[in-house]
Amino acid sequence: MQFLISRYNPETDDKPHMQAFEVDVQRGMMLRDALLDIKRQDESFAFRHSCGEGVCGSDGVNVNGSNKLACITPISELKTPIEVRPFPGRPIIRDLVVDMTQFYEQYKKVDPWLVRKEPAPEQEVLQSPEDRDKLDGLYECILCGCCSTSCPSFWWNPDKFLGPQALLSSWRFLADSRDQATDERLDQLEDPYKMFRCHTIMNCVESCPKGLNPTKAIGNIKNLMIKKAV
């Protein structure tokens, strides 16, 4: 089966170009297996990958126009010809490897850690199973970047709009019954860019390999702001 792969080596190329590779596709093969096969054919081919089971979030790529994790994307589900490109909107370092610095910076901006103001008890801080259930669909984020790099608002304003990933993380802590920085977190988002560039285009929801819903999280943050305002 033929794969078209975006190639770019900054030391020799002016701009990216597509290169065709033949891969002997077996039943049950994932896209990452094909990329590994291509790596065997051509030592100079670069892409990030690690766990191979969709939890480390390294191997996000753009396949036939959609952002996906290569290791959990069955080749059988892809339409031919299969075209693999780096994430859109990010500076390309080499081949499928992009610079994700800005994405991580936005994540760090939402203070993605649990804030407790009271002194810690000797044992665990109690949390009811119902309150814990509110974190499902939020804490599972693997920071792969599929969502933010598929979001047009993030393409236009990657420096100022936090992007769906960071906003999902923000809600993950706002929704945590143990967290004690709700007001600070909401105040931080009070700016025309950080959150309000979201126009519910919902590419993030479609591209999330873990089935999470950043758009809903953003809606929840806005609702909480309203609740706090009245």
Binding site: Q123, E124, L126, R178
Partner: peptide
């Protein structure tokens, strides 16, 4: 160690009485 993890924000599953 586990209590410290919990204080650091790990979202452990919970029992009915709110413990880990």
């Amino acid at each position: 160690t586990v209590y410290e993890l919990e204080h650091n924000g790990v979202p452990f599953s919970r029992l009915e009485n709110g413990t880990i």
